[in-house]
Amino acid sequence: MKVLHVNAGLENGGGLSHIVNLLKEAKIEGKDFELLTLAEGPVAKAAREAGIDTYVLGAGSRYDLASLKRLAAFINDRHYDIVHTHGARANLFLSLIHKKIRATWCITVHSDPYLDFEGRGILGKIFTKLNLHALRKADCVFAVTRRFAQLMINKVNVPASKVHVIYNGIFFHDDSEIPAKYEHMYFNIINVARTEKVKGQELLLKALKKIDDSHIRLYIAGDGSQLDTLKELAQELDIAPQVTFNGFMTQKQLTNLYRRMNLAVLTSYSESFPLVLLEASDNQIPILSTDIGDIKMMIPDEEHGFIAKIGDVDSIAAQLKKAINESPEKLEQMAAREKKYVASHFSVKNQLDSIEKVYQDL
C-alpha cells in the first residue's frame, strides 16, 4: 500500500510533530509512506532530517491554484493508494482535484475547524467555509479526539461511517535517556504553544497575577499574532519580571529548557490531543491542562495531573496553587506515574497501527 501525506509545509507546532513522527515510525516499520508539502518550509526540512522521502510541489503562494494540475499528476503518476492531508490549505487543494485522482482521500482534523481562522476577518470566514466543505468531500476523516469526531458528525455533517478517532502519539524515551534536571530556586512553569487567542495564554498570565507569588517563574515558548499583546498584558498586570517569552523553540532547545521546569501548563480554549503535554510528560514533568479535547484520556485522575475549567482564571489559579503547594517528591511521583501511563497508551506506533487498519478497510 502506497501512501502520500500532504501538508502546506509551513506548520511549526504540533501538526509538524504529528506528521513527522508518524512518517518516521512508518519508515522504521518499512512502510511505503511519503510526504509532499505544497511549499518549502519547516515540515519538509524536519522530514528530510528524519530520513523521510519528501517532495515539494513548489506552490508559488497560498492561492497558487495553478499548481493543482501538477498536484493531480504527481498523485496519479506515482500510483498512490491513499492520499492523506493535514491542514486547511492541503485539504482545500485536494478538494479541488479529488475527482481527478484515483487515490482514496483521508484528512486528519488536528484542531477545531471553526476556530482555526478565528480573528482573521473576512478571509478567515472564507477559509473556514472552504475547509468545512473539504471535510465533507473526503473519503475518510481522522479525528484526534472523540469530541472532534462528534463535531464532525453533528455540526460539520460528515457521515459517521467516514469518521474515525485516532489519538496522537509520540516517541517516548527511556528515563535514562532524559537529561538530568538542573537545580533552581524558583517554581518554574512552562507553556509550549503558539501565541494565538485559542491557546489562552492571557488566562495563564491573569492566573499568575491572581496567585501573587514572586517565587513563580513562567516561560512561554511559542510565537504568533498575540505575542506583543501578551507582553503588554504582562506589563499591565505588573508580572513582567516573572514571565519570559522565549518565542519559537526547537525541540533541542525545549528539551534543555525542560531540565529546569516544575510544571507544564496548557490553558487553551480548544485543543485536539496535545502532543506538547505528552512531550512534557516524556521529560518527566507533571502536567496541567484546561479540560480540552479528550484530555481526561491523557490525565485520567488527580494522581496523574491537574485539570482546570476552560476559560476560567479562578480554576486555573486554583490548580496552579495545588501544584505549587505539592512537595517536590509528590510531583516527581506524579510525573513518573503519568509517563508510565501515557507511554503505554499513546505511542506513535499505536497511532500508526490504528491508522493503517482504517487504510486497509478503505
Rank of each mutant, 00 (worst) to 15 (best):
K31W: 09
N246L: 15
K199Y: 07
A264K: 05
A88F: 12
K231I: 14
P286L: 04
K31L: 14
D228N: 13
K340C: 03
V83T: 08
A44S: 15
E11C: 01
K206V: 01
L123D: 12
N12M: 12
L4H: 09
V358T: 13
V243F: 11
D353T: 13
I170T: 12
W105E: 01
D174L: 08
V163W: 06
E177R: 11
Q360N: 10
F171C: 04
Q360A: 11
R62Q: 13
G311W: 09
I101W: 11
H86P: 01
A336S: 12
F248M: 05
N157P: 00
L10Y: 11
L204E: 10
I189W: 04
D238W: 02
L16G: 00
Q333H: 14
G14N: 06
T267N: 08
N350G: 10
D314Y: 07
C140M: 14
S225W: 03
H86W: 06
L94N: 08
I19M: 06
Y80T: 03
E329P: 00
I28Y: 13
L96V: 00
Q201K: 03
H18Q: 11
E40D: 15
E118D: 12
L288T: 03
F33G: 04
Q201C: 08
Y219H: 14
A8L: 12
A44N: 02
F93S: 03
T250C: 07
V192A: 03
R102Q: 14
D361C: 02
A234K: 02
F117K: 07
A46Q: 09
I19T: 07
F74N: 04
T195A: 14
R70A: 10
G305D: 06
S289A: 15
L237I: 03
D139S: 09
E49C: 01
Q319M: 12
R48H: 04
A343H: 11
L266K: 06
L204Q: 06
T54W: 08
R48C: 04
T250F: 08
Q360P: 00
L57F: 09
H79F: 08
D353N: 14
Y182R: 14
A180P: 00
N246F: 05
S289T: 11
R62H: 13
A317G: 05
N262R: 06
K181N: 07
Y269Q: 10
K340N: 13
L68N: 08
H84C: 05
M334C: 01
Y63K: 12
I299M: 06
D112A: 01
N131P: 02
A138R: 05
K100T: 00
Y219N: 09
S347D: 15
D112F: 02
F248I: 03
Q284Y: 00
N154Y: 12
K322P: 00
N168R: 05
Y80M: 08
L254K: 12
L135S: 01
D213Y: 07
M249E: 14
P286Y: 05
L237D: 09
V56P: 05
K24L: 07
S95K: 10
A88D: 09
P113T: 02
P159K: 11
